[in-house]
Each structure stands twice: as C-alpha cells, then as structure tokens.
Computed example of a mutant assay.
Amino acid sequence: MAKENEAPDGTRRMMCPAEARKVQCRIKPHTLGRGIHLPLLDPKPNPTGPVLVCRQGSITVSPEAGAKQWQAEDYGTEKWQKIYFRLRNSVEGYNGFAKSPLAEAIEASGTRRIRGIAAQTVLLVFQIAHANRRKITNWVETLALNGERPRRRTHLRRRAEHKRPWAPAAA
C-alpha cells in the first residue's frame, strides 16, 4: 500500500498491507485477530526469509519496479469498481461474441483439428482475428457514410421502467 505521495524523482514509499490494517499476516503475529472481515495472508516460504516489506515497516519502490502493480485508482473503491467492471463486462462480452457456435466457436477445440499447442494457438489467433473483423464489419454497417442510410440498424436497448430493486408481491 502507498504510504506517502510520489517523490519528485518518481520513487514511492510503500508499506505492508498488514501494517496498514488491511489484512492479517502470519509473519506479523500482532496483526492476527483483528477481525474476520480482514483476509489472512499466507506468504510463500522463501529460503532467504520473508520479503523485505515483511521485515521492515515500509520500503521505497522505484518507478520501474512499481509500474507493473501501479493503478490509478485504489483497489476496491467505488470508482475502481466502476472502471474495472465496465472493462470486465467488455472483455466477457467479446468472449461470448467469439465463442458463438454460429461463427468462430473458439471454445470448441474440435473446430481446430490439428495436434500440438503451437498449431492450436496459431489457428486460434486466426479465429480471433476473424471475430475482430466480423465485429468491425458489423459496426461499420451501422454508420451513415456519404450521406446514405446505414446498411443496418444499431442495437437499441430497452430502457428500464423502474430503478428500484425487484421484490416479490405480498401474498
């Protein structure tokens, strides 16, 4: 977890999540018993001992080392969830599009009748490329180009009538 704001040279002080009271850790017994709502970490045993952040309260992370784990929004916040779930829905929607049994059917390995993981991967890449092309073609057909009418109508979604949660009728 971030302990301080980023320094002018790009380094950042990070602290152990157990010390920040976000998790419980077996390496730090004083963090145990803080409540069942906190997850329990079980770090992998290491022949050289615990990682540096477990031996100290905090560490300094360079921009190169922290770039892989950096996120603009804090994990689990409402804003993070809004961004994450929108991206997740888009990925899952594309997976459903590419897995359609009427088109590429990438889930069915029987459509790639060849042995070997490398050969299967190459054929899968071609199937995904075809799914991309099909998606782009469908989108282009909904555009009005050169003042003409679009070839296809856009997908219109029904608007929800009520914004309240559904509840069963009283008996």
Rank of each mutant, 00 (worst) to 15 (best):
L123W: 13
L124F: 07
L124E: 02
L124C: 07
L124K: 00
L124N: 01
V125W: 02
V125Y: 03
V125Q: 04
V125P: 00
F126Q: 12
F126E: 11
F126R: 09
Q127N: 07
Q127M: 09
I128M: 13
I128A: 03
I128V: 15
I128R: 02
I128Y: 05
I128E: 06
A129Q: 13
A129R: 13
A129V: 14
A129D: 07
A129C: 14
A129E: 09
H130K: 01
H130P: 00
H130T: 13
A131W: 01
N132S: 04
N132P: 00
N132E: 12
N132D: 12
R133I: 15
R133S: 12
R133G: 10
R133D: 14
R134P: 03
R134S: 04
K135Q: 12
K135I: 10
K135Y: 08
K135C: 08
K135T: 14
I136R: 02
T137C: 02
T137H: 13
T137N: 03
T137P: 00
T137R: 07
T137Q: 08
T137Y: 04
N138M: 04
N138W: 00
W139E: 11
W139V: 15
W139D: 11
W139H: 12
V140D: 00
V140I: 14
E141A: 15
E141F: 06
T142G: 07
T142I: 13
T142D: 05
L143F: 09
A144L: 00
A144M: 02
A144E: 08
L145M: 09
L145D: 02
L145P: 01
L145Q: 01
N146Y: 06
N146G: 10
G147S: 02
G147E: 01
G147W: 03
G147L: 01
E148A: 15
E148C: 11
E148W: 03
E148M: 09
R149T: 15
R149G: 10
R149N: 12
R149P: 06
P150G: 06
P150I: 09
R151F: 07
R151A: 05
R152Q: 05
R152C: 05
R152F: 04
R152N: 08
R152M: 05
R153C: 13
R153I: 12
R153L: 08
R153Y: 02
T154V: 02
T154H: 04
T154G: 12
H155W: 04
L156Y: 08
L156K: 15
R157G: 10
R157E: 10
R157I: 11
R157Y: 10
R158F: 03
R159H: 02
R159I: 03
R159L: 05
A160N: 01
A160D: 00
A160P: 01
A160R: 04
E161P: 05
E161D: 13
H162L: 12
H162Q: 14
H162N: 15
H162K: 13
H162V: 15
K163M: 09
K163A: 12
K163C: 05
K163W: 09
K163S: 15
K163G: 14
R164G: 14
R164L: 10
R164H: 08
R164S: 14
R164M: 03
P165S: 06
P165M: 02
P165I: 07
P165A: 05
W166N: 12
W166R: 14
A167P: 00
A167C: 08
A167G: 05
